[in-house]
Each structure stands twice: as structure tokens, then as C-alpha cells.
Design a protein around this nucleic acid. Structure first.
Lengths: 334, 334
DNA sequence: TTGAAAGCGCTAACAC
DNA sequence: GTGTTAGCGCTTTCAA
């Protein structure tokens, strides 16, 4: 800016005014166009670090998520990216597990972000830090901090329906899960996969059969599920139906069944969860609980924008119902 | 920092020294630990914008890619994320199409990034700007700027092999492509999908049959491909084999064939490209050209780090060969 | 071993 | 309309 100013024999502040478009009325069109032109020619680009430091606001929106892949994350990110792209804000993807490790975090530091969207439960340290700074936060997804603005996705009713259908014609309905013990965190609304599974099993007088497939480094979740399920079925015989914690596990389960020559849905029925695009393209197409990616993105961005403008607005919250999408994999034998 | 300094009755500079770990020898252990402790207690977090502005280097690595989804991008990003996670650097995802629009770009500005990895051909404006600033750049993928450090993925030989196999038992081998006209950009190494297809068709004495499926807003590439191919086949009859520009198109093609009751590979054989995880889990499993996600990430990060340390090092370049992965979808009838 | 002070590139209040 | 000026929070030379 100083260069442009000197070049044009005006003050650097004037250049700043022109380039930032603020104080628009008070700049002569003549000056404005000269500045713009010079900026073009001289290849000027504003230094955002300086801008963030001086003014307030960095125009960064931080999105907390645990990975880019598998597709569930990719679809979440893409949906949000589409919302934010036309705006002057910029997406910053962060893995909170890594940004909150004490000493390291201190010296590493943060960018002065204008807002945070969290698709994962944030560590308490991070939360209190953000609160102290007054950074707007919106919690989204299958977990939601209840004392924070949030967009919660509720699967209860579609799960009930889906699981009841599975249970209706089955003796053994297995739950291919992430955990052996299903954690309950206070102060959060959390997902209903296990509770609903449990409830439906009780209603139907069936025994719970939980198969734990816990993500490991170095092997994809699909491959791991395939392996674990193949072994499980060989040792324990095959359940009549599987409800999978997510579509990755459902796809892995489908592969295992195929490996063993078990037909879906004739011999065994399958219900996934999340509604990633891939679930629809498998053969048989996999029934699932559809997470409303686009709506979550739209609403959470709306909430965040509102909160940025009105820090003292009352708590915003929304509950979106996930939809049961019935496809071939869970078709009933009748 | 000032707060900590005052609290401890020392100078702010000392605090900076301690917290940044520089000048380590010259700080008494006593002071050091007091500072660290105070920082913890007072919930200090370094402001990275200020750090970037003052010192040089922001510890941001900018990754240029066009989207988060479909999986190809997700796998590229995830692979790079795994490389960079243990380092003090941070990934910044950017869509260059949007950051290079003249006037807007000027006022929007950039973060002072330490390095750039580009998975897409960068617009010339952006390139010259980066060069002028001296920002290290590594170009990766199926296109590569030859005058820039790059990691190029060469599909030629695996494509030759794969396509020759398809051609060997077929009369009509269609190419489900992205473009009608295949652009050639000078100064780049670029992908060989069309050239190899053309060559193999000539060798085999077959006519080229290019089916263009060009991405549109508002519909997924798979869904679009499915629709386009269904229509195409109904009108033109069915080729004996399809080579698809990428796995998304292959999955869409597979769905279209299923819709029409065409069996793969008995009636029609199919070869995809990219090697996204999905391709392996479909039924039949889809043969593909495997893009070496992890190796590209590892090498490009290595190149970038080297360039950051030695701005004047000679040009670095590597060519990685993509692998042909044969699965059921292209199994020969013999 | 520590402190004082300049300055990174920008914004915004205030004066002219 | 435009210029002057005081920071934003940090790094880093130089002096003590």
C-alpha cells in the first residue's frame, strides 16, 4: 500500500480506504480509479495477516472435523464449502484433537477466527478458550452441545422405523458398532443409534448382538469391517439382519457377506447409516438413514452469521430429522 | 504476552523468547518455567496473525484443489493431511478458481503462506504472483507444470495395458470422457487418457467412440453419468467395453448398465480410473488405474520442505507410475 | 541473561 | 476528500 501511495503521491491511508471499499463516500472517483489501476499494475495483494491484526476479524471460519476421508466428512465439508464460497469468508479445516495439546498449543497458537463450526464434540479447553475470546460457535451433527448454538440431527424416528422393519422378520439383528460401551456425555444431545437399537430389541424380544468394529490406523474402515465380519460370521453363524453404525461399515459388511456367499437381501438384510452417496450405488443398493448434509450446512451457516452480527442474541437451535431411505438391501422377504 | 510479562515483572521480549523456544540457551530455566506456567494459567494462546506479520512465515501450507467431494479429492486431501499433521505446519485448502478473480482478489488478499501444493493447473496470475513473492510451489497429479517442482503421475503404461485388454475382445470400446475436445496445454505434462485411448483404438483398428459426460451443478457426477449413459445406450446400442475418465463415471456407468439389465463383465467390460476406494467395493469390483495417493503426498511434501529450506536448489521432479488394478469388471470372457 | 525499541502491513479515529 | 497518527500482537536486533 505504501508503494502505491508513494507512486501516486497520496497517503497510504487513502489507498487503504479505496482498497477496502470502506468510507466509500469520501473518496473521489478520480483517486479511486487511479488507486485501483495502480494496484492492478503493481500486482498488489492485501496481506491478510496484517489486515486481521489491525482491523478486527480475519474472515476465517474454522470448521472442526476429524478427517477429509471417508466420504461422510467429504460430504459434510463440501456442503459447507458450497455455502461459504460465495461469501467473503474462508474455510479453515481443523482437527481439534491436535490443536488442543497443552504446551504445543500455546506456542502454536491460533488464527484469529471469526467463527467456528464444530462437527465433533470440542475439547473443554478449546471451548473455554473460544468462549473467553467471544468467538461464535455452532455445534452441528449427531452430537450437539446444548448450551451452544446448534443444529442437531435427530435419527430417532427414522431409526425406530428402520429397525422395527429389520426386527419384524428376524431372529438375530446385529448392530455393527463403533464402541462396546456406548458413552453418554452430559450436556450434549447425542445420537440415538444404540438406544434405539436396544429399545427395538427389547420390544421384539430379541437379544442384543453388538459387533464392535473399532477404527485402526493403517487400514480402512471398510476393509477392517469386512475382515472382522467375515471372522465373526464364520465363528458365530450369520444374523438375519445387520444394522450398521455408518455406511462405511455397511459397505464392509456387504463385502463380507458377498465373500461368504450370503445373499442380500434374500438371506440377510442390511441397514446403514449416514446416507453417503456411495450407499445408493452399491448392489444391492444399501438402505440407510439419510443425514441432511445440505440443510445442516445451510442452517449452521445461517446461525453462525446471525451470531457474528448479534453476539447477544438468544440461543439458536434446530433439530433436523434424518430420513429413512429404503433401498434393496433391507427389502423384506414377504 | 504483555500481560504475562507484567504479571511476572519481566519484559515482553523475554516472554516471546521463552514461548517461541528460540534463543533457548540464553534464558534461565527459572524464568522459562515461570513464563510457561503463567502462560498456562492465564490461558495464553499466541496470535498467529501477529506472529506471521512480525516474523516471517505463517506455517501455512496452501493446498489448491477444486472440491472436497467426490472421494478423489477427499483421498488426495486426506493423504496430504496425514503427512502434514505431525509437523508444525497447517493445511489451508483453497479453490484457486475463486481466489484469482481480479478486483475481488486484490481486496480479498492472501495469507502469507509458506508454501503451495497445487493439484490443479494454477491460473497464470496466481502463478506469477507466487513467483514474485518467492513462495515455494509444488505441482502434483495428472497435470504438472514442467518448470516448477512437481510430482507427476503417469498413467501411460498402465492405461496402455488396460485398454489393450479391453480392445482385444471388443468391437466397440467407448470412452466416457469429460471433454469432447481434449485440451493440450503447453508447458505442462498432462494426462494420457485420451491419447492412449486414441492410440489403442488405432492399433486395434476400432473406431473412437467418445461419450461426453460433463459435470453440471446440482447433480452428482454419478447420477449424471447414469442418466447420460442410459440414454446413450438406448439410442446407440451398447458398446462391448467402457473406459471411464474416472471412477465416478465408472460407477455411474455401472449403475446405468444395471438399470438396463446388461451384465458386467459378461456382456460388457468396464475400466475406471483414479483408484478411489469405492471402486474396489462395488459389485462387480471395478478395475481401475490406481493413483498413488500416499506416495504423491509424501513426495510432494518432501519436495516442498526441501524448497522451503533451499530456495535456490535445482528443479525437483518425480514421475510416479499409476498401477493397473484388474478386478472383476474387466474380466475377459475367455 | 534480560530489556528497550523498531517495525511487520494494515485499519480507523481524528484533524485538516 | 485526504493526510496524520496511533496502535493490532508479535519478532528480533542491539545494548545493558
Amino acid at each position: 500500500m505504501m508503494d502505491i501511495a508513494r507512486h501516486l503521491n497520496i497517503s497510504q491511508a487513502t489507498v487503504s480506504y479505496v482498497l477496502s471499499g470502506r468510507a466509500s463516500g469520501s473518496i473521489s472517483e478520480h483517486t479511486r480509479s487511479r488507486v485501483m489501476e495502480a494496484a492492478q499494475e503493481m500486482g498488489y495483494r492485501r496481506n491478510r495477516a496484517a489486515q486481521a491484526l489491525a482491523g478486527h476479524g480475519s474472515h476465517i471460519i474454522e470448521f472442526c472435523v476429524t478427517a477429509f476421508f471417508p466420504s461422510y466428512y467429504a460430504q459434510v465439508l463440501e456442503a459447507f464449502n458450497l455455502e461459504i464460497r460465495p461469501t467473503p469468508y474462508e474455510l479453515h479445516i481443523v482437527n481439534p484433537a491436535f490443536s488442543s495439546e497443552e504446551e504445543w498449543a500455546i506456542s502454536k497458537g491460533d488464527w484469529p477466527v471469526d467463527g467456528v463450526i464444530a462437527d465433533v464434540p470440542l475439547p473443554e479447553t478449546m471451548l473455554s478458550w473460544l468462549r473467553q475470546r467471544g468467538t461464535p460457535i455452532v455445534s452441528v451433527g449427531l452430537f450437539a452441545h446444548t448450551e451452544i448454538d446448534h443444529v442437531f440431527v435427530d435419527m430417532t424416528s427414522s431409526l425406530l422405523e428402520g429397525l422395527r422393519q429389520l426386527a419384524a422378520h428376524s431372529r438375530r439383528v446385529a448392530f455393527v458398532s463403533m464402541w462396546a460401551a456406548h458413552p453418554v456425555i452430559v450436556g450434549y444431545r447425542q445420537d440415538s443409534r444404540y438406544p434405539v437399537y436396544r429399545q427395538v430389541m427389547q420390544e421384539a424380544g430379541l437379544a442384543e448382538e453388538v459387533i464392535v468394529v473399532h477404527q485402526r490406523e493403517g487400514i480402512s474402515l471398510r476393509a477392517l469391517t469386512r475382515e472382522v465380519l467375515r471372522n465373526y460370521i464364520e465363528q458365530n453363524g450369520c444374523p438375519d439382519a445387520f444394522f450398521c453404525f455408518n455406511d462405511e461399515r455397511a459397505i464392509g459388511t456387504l463385502a463380507a457377506l458377498r465373500d461368504l456367499g450370503v445373499r442380500v437381501p434374500q438371506d440377510v438384510r442390511l441397514l446403514g447409516c449416514d446416507g453417503i452417496e456411495d450407499a445408493a450405488y452399491h448392489y444391492p443398493a444399501i438402505s440407510t438413514i439419510q443425514y441432511p448434509f445440505a440443510e445442516v450446512a445451510r442452517l449452521s451457516w445461517e446461525f453462525l452469521q446471525h451470531r457474528m452480527k448479534h453476539p447477544d442474541a438468544p440461543l439458536q437451535s434446530a433439530t433436523l430429522a434424518a430420513q429413512l431411505v429404503l433401498r434393496e438391501s433391507s427389502a423384506s422377504r414377504n
